[in-house]
Simulated assay, not measured.
Amino acid sequence: MSDFQDRDRIFLEGLAFYGYHGVMLEENKLGQRFRIDLELGIDMTDASRTDDVASTIHYGNVYNMVKEAFEEKRFKLIEALGYHIIVRLLGEFDRLDWVRIRVRKPEAPLPIVAGEAAIEMLRTRDQI
């Protein structure tokens, strides 16, 4: 998978959501903030030549899909949440070749002074 670094990518970083995902009862009851970072693998050749939004993926549509996927179901694990979002994105946007997602919990119920709990996943179409 190292060849992904040499391909075209769209980045959407720091998407902020409030949700009720988690294993702990407090997480399900009180909720918490989440941050989501995306890397979207897409061939940008046509878009760069035509300057036409129809040749790429509209970032607003990506955000709306992530928001919908984030809110439509509660997950115990951020791993499952991340995978769910990947599946929804690849299902919605035919131009996507792969998706890398990082789901971050800045306020995870852990005894850490600073930092956050996070997962990162990379999936291609044939991996979902």
Results as ranks from 00 to 15, higher is better:
residue 49 R to A: 10
residue 41 G to M: 15
residue 7 R to L: 14
residue 88 R to G: 05
residue 21 H to M: 11
residue 82 G to N: 06
residue 114 A to E: 09
residue 59 Y to P: 00
residue 116 E to M: 07
residue 77 L to C: 13
residue 97 D to W: 07
residue 94 D to M: 13
residue 22 G to N: 04
residue 76 K to G: 10
residue 94 D to T: 11
residue 116 E to P: 01
residue 44 M to P: 00
residue 26 E to H: 13
residue 23 V to E: 12
residue 76 K to T: 14
residue 38 L to W: 14
residue 117 A to H: 02
residue 113 V to C: 03
residue 49 R to D: 10
residue 3 D to S: 13
residue 10 I to D: 05
residue 25 L to F: 09
residue 33 R to L: 03
residue 111 P to N: 15
residue 125 R to E: 03
residue 24 M to Y: 14
residue 93 F to D: 05
residue 14 G to H: 12
residue 22 G to E: 09
residue 99 V to T: 08
residue 49 R to Q: 10
residue 29 K to Q: 13
residue 51 D to E: 14
residue 34 F to Q: 01
residue 125 R to T: 05
residue 89 L to F: 03
residue 13 E to D: 09
residue 39 E to Q: 13
residue 88 R to K: 08
residue 111 P to S: 08
residue 22 G to L: 07
residue 4 F to V: 10
residue 106 P to D: 02
residue 93 F to M: 08
residue 28 N to W: 06
residue 12 L to Q: 10
residue 83 Y to L: 13
residue 15 L to M: 13
residue 53 V to H: 02
residue 121 M to I: 07
residue 114 A to N: 11
residue 16 A to P: 00
residue 40 L to E: 02
residue 97 D to L: 13
residue 80 A to E: 07
residue 9 R to I: 10
residue 59 Y to Q: 05
residue 94 D to C: 09
residue 124 T to Y: 09
residue 75 F to S: 03
residue 57 I to D: 01
residue 34 F to P: 00
residue 22 G to R: 06
residue 63 Y to W: 12
residue 81 L to A: 04
residue 90 L to F: 03
residue 117 A to N: 07
residue 110 L to N: 09
residue 91 G to D: 15
residue 101 I to V: 14
residue 103 V to R: 04
residue 47 A to E: 05
residue 77 L to S: 13
residue 74 R to N: 10
residue 59 Y to D: 04
residue 93 F to L: 15
residue 72 E to C: 07
residue 91 G to M: 11
residue 39 E to P: 01
residue 3 D to T: 08
residue 39 E to K: 12
residue 110 L to E: 04
residue 5 Q to K: 10
residue 118 A to P: 00
residue 55 S to V: 00
residue 2 S to F: 07
residue 126 D to N: 06
residue 111 P to M: 07
residue 127 Q to F: 01
residue 55 S to L: 02
residue 9 R to Y: 11
residue 99 V to A: 05
residue 22 G to D: 06
residue 118 A to F: 08
residue 62 V to R: 00
residue 111 P to Q: 10
residue 58 H to T: 06
residue 74 R to P: 02
residue 8 D to E: 11
residue 13 E to A: 06
residue 60 G to W: 07
residue 20 Y to H: 15
